[in-house]
Simulated assay, not measured.
Amino acid sequence: MANVANTASSLDLLRCFEDGAVGGCGVDVRQSGGRCVVRMAGDAGEGVMRFFEVLPGVRLSFNDFHMEECESGFAVSDEVLCVDYCFEGRMEQLLSDGTCSYVAAGDLKVDDRTRHVGRFVMPLAHYHGITVSFEVKRAQRSIERALGGFPVDLRALRRRFCASGDPAIMRGVPGAERIFSDLCAAPSEVRAACFKLKVLELLLLLETTDASPALNERRPYFHRSQVEKVKAARDSMVADLSAGFSARETAERVGLPLTAFKACFKGVYGMPPFAYLRARRMERAAQLLRDTGLRVADIGLMVGYDSPSKFTAAFKDVIGQTPTAYRRQGRFS
């Protein structure tokens, strides 16, 4: 398990990784000016966090993880406000009531990191996103110096979104995707100015966003015991991709009613059980087409299709090409 001390504020990043290897991962930390890059690699996978100081007390983190889980050791000592945006993947967090929350592609999460210590799981084994973090007191002074009369009070924003202590998660907030995409696309020659403008624009967006749906009409969450059963079911589903699959039998095997199993599985992995299994089968088939000379029909059998025509149709539906065309493209690319 990777152990990530998620430096959501302008704390000394090197101090958070002072051992040089955390949770079995090798950690490489490099700082230059207002930028710090943290790279982790180990049995659990690999991850890169690129930190930029926007203003004193305001920091951006570009997060790129290819791992199944990480352990956060970040504990706040001052008032902090963090805004996370997910581009791809999913992130699971255990909440105070024993349920699990999920941040998915297109989601905006606002929290104060008061409950950020612990395990974070990436059910799809990857997560790509951006974190904008504020040390409230210091950041407020910096913003006021940079732009006098700015109408956002960070403490009031923190109270509005973080009253429960659990993260407020919002989906499809108008304007959020554009702001975070602009942060990714900022040209290097004007990056510092662009970061400042976009962070201020984000604060204005939050100032005019109704927090009540995220706080009072939360999307369905699932208790940890259900989640663990669904993960056990997922492991059995992908252990042998050539085997047949029955959602009802799988649900019974892990001790969940069929309806609850399907709902929880989609909540954890973002898609129904059969769609998830088909995607994993086609990923495996694509890897075999690239790396082996096996016949297409034999690869189809290895991923659960005894009919070449059904395998071809499923592969094209998921990958966008027939297996033969995919293999040919790989050979000539």
Rank of each mutant, 00 (worst) to 15 (best):
P323R: 10
F134N: 06
K137F: 01
R115V: 04
V54H: 01
R15V: 10
V4Y: 08
A163V: 09
V238R: 03
R234E: 15
F245T: 04
D166C: 08
C194I: 03
S307H: 08
E46T: 05
V227T: 00
F315P: 01
G73A: 08
R90D: 08
G45F: 00
V296P: 07
K196E: 15
V4Q: 03
L14R: 14
S246L: 09
S101C: 14
V4C: 11
R113N: 08
F315S: 05
V254N: 10
E252G: 14
Q226V: 11
L124F: 01
H126T: 02
Q329R: 15
E228Y: 03
A44Y: 05
L277H: 10
V117R: 13
Q93T: 02
G106V: 00
V268L: 12
F62Y: 10
L241C: 08
I299N: 03
K198Q: 14
T292E: 03
L154N: 01
K310G: 11
A139V: 01
R30D: 14
F51A: 10
G320I: 07
A232P: 11
A313Q: 13
G267P: 10
D78Q: 15
V103T: 09
S333M: 10
E217I: 11
S61Q: 12
E249D: 13
R331C: 15
A260M: 07
L294H: 12
T208D: 14
R218A: 14
L301G: 12
D298S: 15
M49G: 01
E88K: 02
T208Y: 04
L13W: 05
T131I: 07
V83L: 10
A185I: 06
P187V: 03
D112E: 02
N3D: 09
D240W: 06
K310R: 01
R141A: 13
L95Y: 00
T99Y: 07
G24M: 04
A239I: 09
G33I: 00
A286K: 11
I169A: 03
N63F: 00
K198F: 09
S309F: 00
S307E: 12
A176H: 05
S142Q: 12
V117W: 04
A297L: 07
G165S: 02
E68T: 05
F222E: 06
R178W: 07
